[in-house]
Design a protein around this nucleic acid. Structure first.
Length: 552
RNA sequence: GUCCCUGUAGCUCAGUUGGACAGAGCGGCUGCCUUCUAAGCAGCGGGUCGAGCGUUCGAAUCGCUCCAGGGACGCCA
């Protein structure tokens, strides 16, 4: 990556300056190179001299001149300039830029990949909705965030595993099972009452009917104690299958479906708790077992085992994270949770620390609420009450690509409205089509070239010397940097903005530069350029889990 | 009451973790299709970056205090 190269050059020059006694021996940590907002300042800029001025007491301009004076000419850089109050500005060479077109074509699908992760193992867990009902749009947001991050982390050189945690233990499952049993009985003409904390959505009636169609009325003759869990198992298996299908339509898949219940099967739960016990983080009081998070700076302690001896959700999560870090030994674990789990973050970090794991290895992304609207009207999406608009319905109406782009284009931190009325109307003006249209336009050019049997493999990229061409190349070169930023910040929304920028410079190029023309040599060079642009656009779209259409 | 997120153009939101004159899309207003896709291009207009104080050579970005909106604070998950 060129940015990395410039950082190396700066580091070398600065340490050379130190050896020559021009610069005091202060540490040169994290040298930053960035893109100036104003293009007149060049392609990259560093404020290193300004930073060093503070540490050394020297004038920033003097430092800048000393450092620049020690930088040797390189094949990439046309000019290195000092600018007040103490910036070092780099401008890249045009012929180096044009050569990058060949590099991109050579890299193909792998263009944009970087080695940041060095093969370390990252687990990313997301969606993980209780198997008690269909997904809604809020879940879709987490799903899209997670799957995109997984794509980007893989491109950044990590070994990524995507996981769905199935909450198949605990009280909500009991409520689900009893609700299904009640609906099952009702559908078979038996007078039964729904539990007060039950799931009243109409999908439960459909589910009961489906079970009856396949299993008949045989559960009526079983004692309730046997019928409820058996029915519940069948029901939640069906729900999970639905969840899997709905996510597939959004282009989301998982490597592992992990059962919460399995944590209690093979002693992992016991080992996790005893490890905390050894550390002195477990205490008995008020008839229950507690995790003493106050000892780790938390506001309050949390119950692990209830008075009746049953473990809480928190207990499961302790065992689950023990499993992730100490049994499966992931280097890094990322959880994507909804805003309602926000209070869970700090105590989970405390648990991880108490288990002897550096809390930085646990990353938690909180995806903020999605408010579903129909015009001005608020649409309820709670599973417990009444009818809901499911994720499936939204995806069918709006389309997977537009859904993905819409959710990705806002940072996970900000709440968002999803207006069903606007979704369809706006889909015509949606930026997603602007990006895909650029890809389709290129495909169209390449089709024309193929019809005319133009082989551009011997094209000379040096001919690409006009402004629109160089602007396009510069933008293409940013993809690896975007991958790095997203992998580092875990904020995939940068990708959507990059994709739009790239499409913009392409559309502008397209308007100004005719590709297939009478000039054979230029045609070949430009065909190479647009093919490279197609590669980069497609890569950006694929990282976001979207399609790159050849026709629109 | 404590904690978390948010507050930037008429609307929806970016702003590369402190850099150089604050950006995009939508909407509004002007132009541009006999040549590779007009789902496009070029241009105009639009701002007290919620408010105030502070740190710094330099703040939308960091700290403190307020204001406003949303969320979380259970032996639910």
């Amino acid at each position: 990556m060129i940015k990395q190269r410039l950082i190396e050059l700066l580091t070398e020059a600065a340490s050379q300056a130190q050896q020559l006694g021009k610069l005091p021996a202060v540490t040169l940590l994290d040298i930053v190179v960035e893109h100036p907002q104003n293009a007149e300042y060049g392609d990259y800029a560093s404020s290193l001299p300004l930073k060093l001025a503070r540490a050394t007491g020297l004038s920033p301009l003097t430092i800048a001149n000393d450092i620049v004076g020690l930088m040797a000419p390189t094949p990439e850089v046309a000019s290195i300039a000092v600018a007040p109050p103490g910036f070092i500005n780099f401008t890249l060479k045009d012929d180096w830029l044009t050569q990058q077109v060949d590099s991109i074509l050579m890299a193909g699908d792998a263009y944009g990949n970087i080695v940041l992760g060095e093969g370390s193992r990252v687990q990313i867990e997301f969606v993980s909705v209780n198997p008690t009902g269909p997904l809604h749009v809020g879940h879709g947001r987490g799903a899209i965030l997670g799957s995109t991050l997984a794509n980007v982390l893989a491109a950044a050189g990590y070994k990524v595993e995507k996981e769905y945690y199935i909450n198949d233990a605990g009280s909500q499952i009991v409520a689900f099972n009893r609700s299904l049993y009640a609906r099952y009985q009702q559908c078979l003409g038996v007078d039964a009452e729904m539990p007060a904390d039950g799931y009243f959505g109409s999908y439960m009636v459909d589910l009961a009917k489906e079970v009856i169609a396949e299993e008949g009325d045989r559960f009526l003759s079983l004692p309730e104690k046997e019928a409820v869990p058996q029915l519940g198992q069948i029901g939640s298996d069906k729900v999970i299958e639905q969840v899997r299908n709905d996510l597939e339509r959004l282009g989301v898949s998982f490597d592992v479906w992990f059962s919460e219940r399995s944590l209690y099967d093979n002693g992992q739960y016991q080992r996790a708790i005893s490890l905390l016990h050894q550390g002195g983080y477990i205490a008995e009081k008020e008839g229950a077992t507690w995790f003493v998070s106050t000892a780790l700076g938390e506001d309050k302690d949390n119950v692990v085992v209830r008075g009746d001896g049953s473990p809480t959700y928190f207990a499961s999560d302790i065992a689950y994270h023990y499993n992730k870090f100490l049994e499966r030994k992931f280097d890094k674990v990322i959880n994507i949770w909804g805003a309602d789990h926000q209070g869970h973050v700090s105590r989970m970090k405390a648990v991880v620390g108490a288990l002897g794991i550096s809390p930085e290895r646990l990353g938690v992304i909180i995806s903020q609420m999605v408010t579903l609207l129909r015009g001005e009207e608020l649409v309820r999406i709670s599973k417990r009450s009444g009818d809901i608009i499911t994720l499936r319905e939204v995806v069918e109406e709006v389309g997977s690509d537009a859904c993905r782009f819409f959710f990705l284009s806002r940072s996970a931190d900000s709440q968002m409205d999803f207006d069903l009325e606007l979704a369809k109307k706006e889909s015509v003006d949606n930026p997603v089509y602007y990006v895909q249209y650029a890809h389709a336009r290129i495909a169209s050019i390449l089709r024309l070239a193929q019809e005319r049997e133009i082989d551009c493999r011997d094209g000379d990229v040096c001919l690409l010397n006009t402004e629109p061409e160089l602007v396009l190349i510069r933008k293409m070169l940013l993809l690896p940097e975007i991958v790095e930023i997203v992998a580092h910040t875990l904020e995939p929304h940068h990708l959507t903005y990059y994709a739009q920028d790239l499409a913009t410079v392409f559309h502008s190029f397209y308007k100004q530069c005719r590709v297939v023309s009478e000039d054979k040599a230029l045609t070949k060079a430009r065909l190479k350029l647009v093919e490279a642009a197609k590669t980069v656009l497609a890569k950006a779209l694929h990282l976001m889990g979207m399609t790159a259409p050849d026709k629109m």
